[in-house]
């Protein structure tokens, strides 16, 4: 196994594009090293992106935030402006593992690992996050929901790297929230996760995005669930519609972490709870 720690994104792309064997990007390593330990990944090349300055900083831009792919959960949690703008995204990322894992794990890694249960992903999608994807001589900006195509699979091409995640500047009276269900209070993988963002006008939901995690092969954006909220003040009727829309969007499996029936049921429960938090954060009367 060859280990490289390039200083620029360009070099990283060149290394990955050139490699004929199994090439992996090492961001936080909290998934890759586990897979190596279990013998599930046997890299010929590992490209460590944590020495690329551009990938390890958070920048506030005119349109929002640019979070480098190597930025750890701990760095994100410490960033006051993002906490204020997108508390749901920060909370979701903070839920990935322990404080030890937080010291290493990254949003981009959480995304590219392509687990259906990734915590930060539904929150990012609900917030309208985008991924900046860099390939050889090319750079494209892709909505986060377009990155993962199935368990362990992404739309990234050989040699492409996610350089950063961007979050938009939230419109006024916008709130977001992410809730997940796990049997333990910590150190667990989501059985169900729900990310919701919404923007209010005079207490009425004007815009909303609802995204479910761990209930389908990928995180699913549920426009019907968003429609259930839009135009409401989060009354019971709207919440009930939200629950129904979420249940309908679920396409889960029975596995060691939960049954399909359980996931479908609890997706609605969490959606309701997350919607209430987001609504309150957007300035709506609780």
């Amino acid at each position: 196994m060859r280990y490289e720690s390039p200083a620029t994104t360009k070099e990283a792309v060149a290394l990955l594009a050139k490699e004929k064997g199994a090439a992996f990007i090492l961001a936080g390593g909290t998934d890759l090293l586990v897979r190596m330990k279990m013998g599930l990944a046997e890299p010929d090349l590992v490209v460590d992106i944590k020495r690329i300055p551009d990938m390890n900083t958070i920048k506030t831009t005119q349109t929002g935030f640019r979070i480098g792919a190597g930025v750890s959960g701990a760095q994100l949690t410490a960033h006051k402006a993002i906490n204020k703008a997108w508390p749901g995204v920060v909370e979701a990322t903070h839920l990935i593992g322990s404080d030890q894992i937080q010291g290493r794990c990254t949003m981009a890694g959480n995304l590219c690992n392509a687990s259906p249960a990734a915590d930060s992903v539904p929150a990012m999608i609900a917030a309208g996050a985008k991924a900046i994807v860099v390939g050889k001589g090319k750079r494209r900006t892709v909505p986060v929901e377009k990155i993962v195509t199935g368990p362990g699979k992404t739309s990234l091409k050989k040699g492409e790297v996610v350089e950063a995640i961007t979050l938009p500047k939230p419109a006024k009276r916008t709130g977001d929230a992410y809730l997940r269900f796990t049997p333990r209070t910590e150190m667990d993988i989501a059985v169900v996760g729900v990310g919701i963002s919404m923007t209010l006008e005079r207490g009425v939901v004007k815009k909303a995005r609802v995204c479910l995690g761990a209930v389908a092969p990928t995180a699913v954006l549920v426009p019907a669930a968003a429609r259930a909220l839009v135009g409401s003040k989060l009354d019971d009727a709207a919440l009930n519609k939200l629950v129904a829309a979420c249940a309908k969007a679920c396409n889960p499996i029975d596995d060691k972490r939960g049954t399909a029936a359980y996931r479908t049921r609890v997706a609605g429960v969490l959606a309701k709870r997350a919607a209430k938090i987001a609504y309150k954060r957007a300035g709506g009367a609780a």
Partner: peptide, 25 residues
């Protein structure tokens, strides 16, 4: 695999599981 914390160390002051860091890093 990063699930028990017995190998906790600090890396440049940041708490990490040393089983989830490569030695070369």
């Amino acid at each position: 695999t990063g699930d028990c914390g017995a190998c906790s160390v600090t890396l440049d002051g940041q708490l990490v599981c040393s089983c989830l860091v490569l030695g070369v890093e």
